[in-house]
Every structure is written in C-alpha cells, then in structure tokens.
C-alpha cells in the first residue's frame, strides 16, 4: 500500500527541482523549495494543511515575478520602455498580494493599461505613414512643369497637406477616446523604438519632421 506522505514528499521535491538549474526562475525555485521543505518537515499528512499556510500563493507570486523579470529584461534589451513599464509596475506591486485571484486581476489590469499606453505611444507613427505624403508634396511643389500646369501641381501638393492634417485630426479624435489629453507628438518618432522603423538617415528625418510640423502647425 502506498505511503501517501512519502508520495507527497517526493512530489514536492521534484516540483521544486524543476526550477533548480534555471537562472530565469530563481524566485520560483525559492518559493517551491520553501513549499517542499514545509512538506518534508511533516511526520503526518494532516500536518501539511497547517504548515502550508500561504506557501502555495507565494509560489504563484514568485512565478509571476520571474515571468515579469524575463519580460522586463527582453523589453529593455529591445529598447521598448513603454512595454517595459508593464512588468515594472507588476513587479512593484506583486509582493503586496496574498490571494492568487487578486494577483491575476492586477496583472490583467496592468496588461490592459499597458495596451492603452502602447496604442497611445504608437499612434504617433502616423508620421511614418505621412512620410509618403510629404514626399508627394515636395514632388508636386518642385516638379519642373510648364507654367500652365503649375497651379494644378500646387493644388495636388495642397491636397496632400490637407490629408496630413485630416489624418492627424482623425487620430487625435480616436486616441482621445482613451486619453482625453492625448496630443500627437511627432518628435517622439526619433526615440529608438520608433526610429528603427524608418529606413532613412537622421538628417532626412529631421528635415521631414520640420516640414510635417509646419504643415500640421505643431
């Protein structure tokens, strides 16, 4: 007949051992080790309920911390500060929680808050989309054409300038549904997380930003 106490001791030892050699799960290893030690110290199965206390909850908190430490490290490696703020906030708050559901709820709320912040930040990338329109404005304004067509070309340039202003206005209306104070800030596009998606030199970006801000009156 199986010795349940021995079976549980072996189970908790193996459970703790999962994280033993993985430096990414240090907190989980410590928490699981504490849980295992509580079990190892029992001489009867019934004792575990009292020795367990909140050790199980602490394992959930530890795993949450480990996952968010990894997430934070990846965001920092990829230079994504807006995304990194989510695990940072979770890590600041995690130790306050003793109930798993409250912890899960907090994590979900921080993730949703983070999604809003990412949307608001990345909405500034309308500048990238408008780059093509700035080029068209330059093309139509500077193309050498017979005098009879110059007004026509200026009208085409004006069309794209108006489109840029419309796009900015539409984006601001949408983003203000998330944050009433949101204002388009194209300068932010020079920060690494946005800049890496523009295949142009810095001086060209500065030049386009200047034209863009003049057109948009920013």
């Amino acid at each position: 007949m199986s010795d349940l106490l021995q079976d549980y001791k072996e189970y908790y030892a193996v459970r703790a051992g999962r994280y033993a050699e993985n430096p990414n799960y240090r907190n989980s290893f410590e928490a699981e080790k504490n849980l295992s030690e509580a079990m190892q110290s029992c001489s009867e199965l019934g004792e575990f309920k009292d020795r367990l206390g909140n050790l199980n909850q602490l394992c959930a908190i530890a795993l949450t911390k480990d996952k968010n430490l990894m997430e934070k490290a990846v965001c920092e490696e990829l230079k994504e500060p807006i995304r990194a703020a989510i695990p940072e906030r979770i890590l600041e708050k995690a130790d306050q929680y003793t109930e798993v559901f409250d912890l899960i709820n907090m994590v979900n709320e921080e993730n949703t808050r983070g999604m809003r912040e990412i949307s608001l930040d990345e909405a500034n990338r309308i500048f990238n989309y408008c780059w093509m329109m700035l080029d068209r404005i330059e093309t139509y304004s500077q193309a050498v054409v017979p005098a009879a067509y110059q007004a026509d070309m200026q009208n085409s340039a004006k069309y794209y300038a108006d489109r840029i202003r419309e796009i900015i206005k539409e984006t601001e209306e949408q983003m203000r549904l998330l944050d009433p104070a949101w204002k388009h800030n194209p300068d932010i596009i020079k920060e690494y997380r946005h800049r890496r998606l523009l295949p142009y030199r810095d001086e060209h970006i500065d030049e386009q930003l200047s034209k863009y801000k003049t057109i948009a009156n920013i």
Binding site: E138, V145, M153, H204
Partner: peptide, 20 residues
C-alpha cells in the same frame, strides 16, 4: 497633362530615391 507633367514628377522621384 501626363505628357507635360510626368517628366518633372519623374525627376523629383529620382532625386528622392538618390537622396534617401
């Protein structure tokens, strides 16, 4: 309109391609 304006447009496109 195409005959008269497209070369001017083409040269601007060429200029930007070289520039960027």
């Amino acid at each position: 309109r195409t005959q008269k304006t497209q070369p001017g447009i083409f040269k601007q496109h060429e200029k930007l391609f070289q520039k960027y």
